[in-house]
C-alpha cells in the first residue's frame, strides 16, 4: 500500500513540475504561423514547378494566403483543386485560359540534314555549345531531348525523328522546356492559337531547303493570302498577329513546304494542300559540309 502511495506521490509531483514547466515554456516560446498555409500547401500539387512565378508550392501557398496571388495561377492543379482552394480561402479563382508549350520546328531527322557529326555529352544544351550542334539548320531542333528530360509532367516525348511532341492534355505551361531549349524553339501559347509557324529558319529561298525540307523559304505567300495583315514577314519569317482574327486556315494553303500549319487536337499539325508531302521514314543523309 505504502509503495503505491509513494509511486503515486512521486509520479504526481513529477508530472506537476514538468507540466508547469511546459506550460510556461509554451507561453514564452510560442511561434505563430498561419495554419492555413499548411492546408493550402497540402492542396497544391507540390511539384514545385514554378509555373506560378513562385519558387515552390510553399511560397505560392504563402502568397495565396496573404492574398498576393490567385489560385488560377497554378496551372498544374486540376480545376477542382483550384476551385477548392479558392473556396477555402474565400477568394476569386482568377482563371486563365489554358496555355501549352508549342514547338516551332518540324525538322526531324527525316527532313533535316546534319552538317557535322557531334560527339560529346548527349544533351541539346551541350551540343549547342559545340559550333551550334551538328544540325545543318542553325535554328532547328537538335533532338537530344533536353525538353523531354526536364518536363516533370511527362508531357513531352521524342518521336521517331528525334523531335519533341507535346501532349496538350498533360502540358501545364510551366515553362521548363522554354527555358531549357538552347535554340529557343518552345513558347507558351493559349490552346486556341491554332495557326502556327512551324519554323525558325531565318534563311531565304531555295538554299534553305538544302538544310531542311520543311523550312520556311520566306516566299511570303501566307502573308499575302491572309486578310487584314494577320501575318507579316519579319526577318524572313511569317509572324502571326494573334490579337487579330486568327481562326482561319487560308494562310496555310499555299505554303510550299508546310512551314505554316494548322494545329488540330486530334490530327496534329495540318499542312496546306500545296505543300510537298515528304514520306521518308529513314534518316536524311548527312550531306557535304
Amino acid at each position: 500500500m505504502m509503495t503505491i502511495l509513494i509511486a503515486l506521490a512521486a509520479l504526481g509531483c513529477l508530472t506537476l513540475v514538468l507540466a508547469i514547466l511546459l506550460i510556461a515554456a509554451n507561453k514564452k516560446l510560442h511561434v505563430v504561423e498561419d495554419p492555413r498555409i499548411d492546408t493550402v500547401e497540402a492542396m497544391l500539387p507540390s511539384v514545385n514547378c514554378g509555373a506560378c512565378g513562385y519558387p515552390g508550392c510553399r511560397q505560392f501557398a504563402e502568397a495565396l494566403v496573404a492574398g498576393k496571388a490567385l489560385p488560377g495561377k497554378c496551372s498544374v492543379s486540376t480545376d477542382e483543386t483550384r476551385v477548392a482552394i479558392a473556396r477555402f480561402l474565400g477568394v476569386a479563382l482568377g482563371a486563365e485560359e489554358k496555355r501549352v508549350a508549342r514547338l516551332a520546328c518540324a525538322g526531324g531527322t527525316n527532313v533535316a540534314r546534319n552538317r557535322a557529326r557531334y560527339h560529346g555529352v548527349k544533351s541539346c544544351q551541350a551540343a549547342s555549345l559545340v559550333s551550334g550542334g551538328g544540325k545543318a539548320c542553325f535554328w532547328g531542333c537538335l533532338g537530344y531531348g533536353d525538353c523531354e528530360a526536364v518536363c516533370d509532367f511527362d508531357a513531352i516525348t521524342m518521336n521517331a525523328f528525334a523531335l519533341p511532341v507535346v501532349d496538350v492534355d498533360k502540358c501545364t505551361a510551366c515553362g521548363d522546356c522554354v527555358e531549357v531549349c538552347p535554340k529557343d524553339l518552345f513558347s507558351l501559347h493559349p490552346v486556341s492559337h491554332r495557326l502556327w509557324v512551324n519554323c525558325k529558319n531565318l534563311g531565304q529561298g531555295e538554299a534553305v531547303l538544302e538544310e531542311c525540307q520543311v523550312a520556311c523559304t520566306a516566299c511570303g505567300k501566307c502573308a499575302m493570302d491572309a486578310a487584314d495583315n494577320l501575318i507579316t514577314m519579319v526577318n524572313n519569317l511569317p509572324v502571326v498577329n494573334y490579337s487579330k482574327n486568327h481562326h482561319t486556315r487560308i494562310p496555310i494553303q499555299r505554303c510550299p513546304t508546310g512551314a505554316i500549319v494548322w494545329l488540330d487536337d486530334q490530327l496534329g499539325a495540318i499542312k496546306g494542300t500545296e505543300s510537298k508531302k515528304i514520306v521518308r521514314k529513314g534518316q536524311r543523309r548527312a550531306g557535304i559540309t
Partner: peptide
Amino acid sequence: IPLVHYFKLSKNRVKK
C-alpha cells in the same frame, strides 16, 4: 570524362 564540355555547359546554364 568530357570535363570541359560539362563546364562549358554548366557555365552557360549558370549565366542564363
